[in-house]
């Protein structure tokens, strides 16, 4: 059952991210649903599942992006793993705390990705961080926090996390 849910999640993320989200982008920036999904899975299901689902999401999304495979694997897998670890240390997570956490993680992974762009000089890198990485991190935080808030209203999230 869980495997089917994860499979559906990974398969649906691609059309959501590549076809629908460009219409909802603000200033040509859209949230990274892969990162948000990996973080939520890590938070609810633990570090191992967070890592594996994050890796699967990273790999499948990299097939539909001009970006590097290793970067996608590393950021999505790493976020799933990190969220799993953090989730184990916190018994009651609020949507604001999750949103802030996702903002920081997305910012860190975005800066890491920007540093790996070889053709950028200092000003171009700053432009990228200011105009793409930071707005996307804010977007990720809002979307992640919002999703968690919706889930917490619909389900008993504490029970979900302990199961």
């Amino acid at each position: 059952m869980k495997f089917s849910i994860y499979l559906a999640l990974v398969l649906l993320l691609v059309p959501l991210q590549t076809t629908l989200l460009p219409h909802l982008s603000l200033w040509n920036v859209k949230p990274d649903l892969g990162l948000v999904a990996a973080a939520l899975v890590g938070l609810f299901a633990g570090e191992l599942e967070g890592l594996l689902v994050g890796l699967a999401i990273g790999w499948v999304l990299s097939l539909f992006s001009a970006g590097e495979l290793w970067l996608s694997l590393l950021t999505n897998g790493g976020v799933g793993l990190l969220a799993g670890f953090l989730g184990r240390q916190v018994s009651q997570m609020t949507s604001v705390a999750l949103g802030l956490g996702l903002l920081l993680v997305s910012l860190a992974s975005g800066v890491f990705a920007a540093l790996n762009f070889q053709h950028l000089d200092g000003s171009q890198m700053w432009w990228m961080i200011e105009s793409i990485v930071f707005p996307q991190a804010c977007f990720d935080g809002v979307v992640g926090g919002g999703l968690y808030w919706l889930l917490s209203r619909r389900f008993d999230v504490i029970r979900l996390r302990t199961e």
């Binding site: 633990g46 570090e47 191992l48 967070g50 890796l55 694997l73 590393l74 897998g77 790493g78």
Partner: peptide
């Protein structure tokens, strides 16, 4: 946000860390 003690199986955590470390090494 309350802090809580880890409830995760210790083995799963170690396995996750090992997998990630292995992936890092393999990727580089």
């Amino acid at each position: 946000m309350w802090m809580a003690h880890s409830r995760s199986p210790y083995g799963a955590r170690r396995l996750a860390l090992a997998c990630f470390a292995l992936l890092l090494v393999a990727l580089f």
